[in-house]
Design a protein around this nucleic acid. Sequence first.
DNA 1: TTAGGGTTAG
Length: 265
Amino acid sequence: MAGKKFSSYHLAAALRREPDPAAALRLFLNPPTSATPSSAPFRYSLRCYDIIISKLAAARLFPAMDIQPDACTYNILIRAAAASGSLEHARRLFDEMLRRGIAPTVVTFSTVVAALCNAGQLEEAFEVKEMMVRRHKVSPNAYVYASLMKGLCEKGDVDDAVRLKEEMAGNAELLLDSAVYATLVRALFQVGRKGEVVGMLEEMKGRGIVADRVVYNAIIAGFCEDERDPSAAFAVLDDMKKSGCKADAVTYNTLVACLCKLGRW
DNA sequence: TTAGGGTTAG
């Protein structure tokens, strides 16, 4: 493979081939770089960590396994635990990071809040929003708010979600963004309040927030479910393109499904 | 390096 870039893929293969765990660790810590010295270093894949940790563990070389975790490590683990359906495991990881003296970041809390909201545990999610400020001096940001607002909307509490948006607007530290509006726009269509969508979008524009793909997709989805006639949705698709926003797979999946439902093969 | 918001299907 002379002249070819050495990537984490090659490292994973080399680690798998190396029978001596100490040699594997040396390889992991000091991988051969590319033949071209100017080329950028590669990122370690999770697979590489997996292989080296498994090898060291099998050889009972525990001290060598001690790759010091930081907040980011825990954030990744917490997200994975929540994604696999175990909020309990996520909570244990959170406690563990505190015990180790690793300060949770706003990413940690936004991950936890999103997981709770996805599980429908809104009350707990709001408790986290309070607790992160009170106990950890970390302020919620737009990620945290967007998750809470989506959770509220899914329960049909669109007005409460709008109130949360107002709470953000009243706090100079907090920047509203397109995600917040995409959530509200989608919800307004879903509860049959599409008349309020235009005002919401104007407010967004007035705040200097540009509609992105997700906002457009929310509007298109709204018109698709709402109309016997998808022409409004296609008009939005035109606007979207004109504004320089590229339609993506979500856009087209929405429109294709809409046409299929109407029998317009 | 890690987090949110938009869709379809099953």
